[in-house]
Simulated assay, not measured.
Amino acid sequence: MQKSIIAAVFGALLVPMIPASASASAIESACNRSDRPQATRALCRCVGSVANQTLTRAEQRRAARFFRDPQLAQDVRMSRSARDNEFWTRYRAFGAAAEQRCSF
């Protein structure tokens, strides 16, 4: 009985230590949900991994919306706001890195 209690407490303490990358990123999830035939699980996992390394969570959520509505990407790209331009620069760097690392 005491061993099971200790195991439960130990397990509860370890749950917060599981890295966030263990769950799918917003980009990976959006990629998997997309209707694009080339969006395989392996490719989406790779792209999600690159997103985790290059974009913040907020930026990933913003970019994930581009899968549903590509016009949003065009709107951001054409925007004159400094915030959008800074995001677009980071998004393009993410895209270049994903293209380089995930081309298999």
Rank of each mutant, 00 (worst) to 15 (best):
M1E: 14
M1Q: 13
Q2P: 09
K3L: 08
S4P: 05
S4I: 13
S4W: 13
I5A: 10
I5W: 07
I6R: 08
A7D: 03
A8G: 13
V9K: 11
V9E: 10
F10K: 12
A12D: 12
A12P: 12
A12G: 15
L13R: 12
L13G: 14
L14G: 12
L14I: 15
V15M: 14
V15D: 07
P16V: 06
P16Y: 03
I18A: 10
A22C: 12
A22F: 14
S23M: 15
I27G: 06
S29L: 10
A30G: 07
C31V: 01
N32I: 11
R33V: 05
R33K: 15
S34W: 06
D35W: 07
R36C: 05
R36M: 05
R36L: 04
P37A: 00
Q38P: 04
Q38I: 08
A39E: 01
T40Y: 03
L43G: 01
L43F: 09
C44Q: 02
C44E: 06
R45F: 11
V47M: 08
S49V: 09
S49M: 10
L55E: 04
T56P: 07
T56S: 15
R57P: 07
A58R: 11
Q60M: 00
R61H: 01
R62L: 10
A63Y: 00
A64H: 04
R65T: 03
F67D: 00
R68F: 04
D69A: 06
D75C: 01
V76H: 06
M78Q: 14
S79M: 00
S81L: 02
A82G: 11
A82Y: 12
A82E: 15
A82D: 14
D84S: 01
D84G: 02
N85L: 14
E86Q: 13
F87H: 07
T89H: 13
T89M: 11
T89P: 05
R90T: 02
Y91P: 00
R92W: 05
A93F: 12
A93H: 12
A93V: 09
G95L: 07
A96F: 06
A97E: 11
A98D: 02
E99P: 09
Q100D: 13
Q100R: 15
R101E: 12
R101Q: 15
R101H: 10
C102G: 04
F104S: 14
